[in-house]
Design a protein around this nucleic acid. Structure first.
Length: 277
DNA sequence: CGGTTACCCTGGATGC
DNA sequence: TGCATCCAGGGTAACC
């Protein structure tokens, strides 16, 4: 579920409960999520290590340990962390990190089990976070960078925005919201946007993603931060989840459609404000 | 190579 | 109430 603002919120919470602390134990309840590492090695490698730093790249969480190893977590659709002071297991909890702070228990929960967890050294970490997987961050991508990434592809602009190598951190919600803000139709071919449109889209992306971070992300159904609190950016959605509602700019009913090349994900837009020409 | 598709999972909502 | 069907904010391998 989470896109960049939700993952950023997640990471800020994790820092409060884990950063600088020592991991006392790790328990993997569902090894299915582990990527190329056994349950035993994952648990043993993390146990006893101090958490040096927690950060994110796009929608991926990095828990950096003293000594050089890092855990890289991809929450994908339904993954998230939950801190607690007692040992009660939350629903769908898959991994437990016990630390030496007041929030002794940090759980990784994932309803659909699509999330992935890797254990990497410095070299593997650099490879995982390279341009093979991630373009510039949506929080600060420049118009020059965006223009360069879009020039080479005739895919629909929305498909390009969902490609993490073009811009890192955007998912279905923020793609729709950014395109509405920039008044660009989601099916426009990426390489046919004018320079002015690319600049505008770039500003919209940065503005919306930053605003969403300040509002702790979007909670539609099951995203909550580390402390179980909902975000509030859903109150500012202009198109996502607003099918048939009047456009805030022109009153035209918002359309929800399936467009090609998006793996069946739904697309919301205003057919009047976002013209296809 | 760029672009598209199938698929990995589970559970809640919707429809009959 | 029960059951079938559809849908979900992601990412990647395999394919054309």
């Amino acid at each position: 579920m989470p896109e960049l603002p939700e993952v950023e919120t997640m990471v800020r919470g994790l820092r409060m409960v884990m950063e600088g602390r020592r991991i006392q134990s790790v328990r993997v309840f569902d090894p299915f999520l582990l990527e190329k590492v056994s349950r035993r090695r994952f648990e043993q490698t993390l146990t006893g290590k101090r958490v040096r730093r927690i950060w994110r790249k796009g929608k991926w969480v990095v828990i950096e340990l003293a000594g050089g190893f890092s855990a890289v977590i991809q929450p994908r659709m339904t993954g998230g962390f939950r801190a607690s002071m007692d040992g009660n297991r939350p629903a769908h909890s898959r991994i437990l990190f016990r630390v030496d702070g007041p929030h002794h228990h940090v759980w990784f929960c994932d309803t659909r089990r699509l999330g992935r967890v890797a254990l990497v050294d410095e070299v593997e970490l650099a490879a995982k976070l390279s341009a093979d997987h991630h373009g510039p961050e949506a929080t600060d991508i420049t118009a020059t960078e965006l223009a360069a990434a879009l020039a080479g592809t005739k895919r629909p602009i929305k498909a390009a925005l969902l490609d993490q190598r073009v811009v890192s951190g955007i998912g279905n919600i923020y793609a729709d919201e950014s395109l509405f803000d920039a008044r660009i139709h989601p099916e426009r071919r990426a390489n046919q946007l004018t320079a002015a449109e690319v600049r505008k889209l770039c500003r919209s992306i940065r503005r919306i993603i930053r605003l969403a971070i300040s509002m702790q992300g979007t909670t539609m159904r099951n995203y909550f931060n580390v402390f179980g609190e909902a975000g509030s950016f859903q109150d500012r959605h202009r198109v996502y989840g607003r099918k048939d509602d009047p456009c805030v700019r022109c009153k035209t009913p918002i359309v929800r459609a399936n467009i090609d090349g998006l793996l069946g994900r739904s697309t919301h837009y205003c057919p009047t404000c976002q013209r296809h020409e």
